[in-house]
């Protein structure tokens, strides 16, 4: 499975997001640290989930990092995150 699909699958399972957007930004980082041929190293993720309600930014992003710990260990070098509750997204 492509890395983006894995990310989508795991976040969907864990957070039941109202909205989820995953963009592979790897090409923007060509030649920079962490880039490798074929991409799949740099992602931007926007997640809107009820699960974030009552949690501060650090707690929300920690949660996402935990869910994607294997991917981060396996070659995902950067994950740009936007984590919102449905209310904040409105």
């Amino acid at each position: 499975m492509a890395v983006a699909e894995t990310i989508e699958h795991k976040l969907t399972q864990a957070l039941a997001p109202q909205r989820l957007k995953i963009v592979d930004d790897s090409e923007k980082h060509k030649g920079h640290a962490g880039y490798r041929e074929g991409g799949e190293t740099h992602f931007s993720v926007e997640v809107v989930s009820e699960a974030f309600t009552g949690q501060n930014r650090v707690a929300r992003q920690r949660r996402v990092y935990e869910i994607l710990a294997e991917e981060l260990a396996a070659g995902v070098h950067a994950l740009q995150l936007k984590t919102l509750t449905p209310e904040e997204d409105a």
Binding site: R57, V58, Q61, K82
Partner: peptide, 12 residues
Amino acid sequence: EFVGGCDIIREM
């Protein structure tokens, strides 16, 4: 105190 990484600082 840990405040955050790049996305959090930028948003704040």
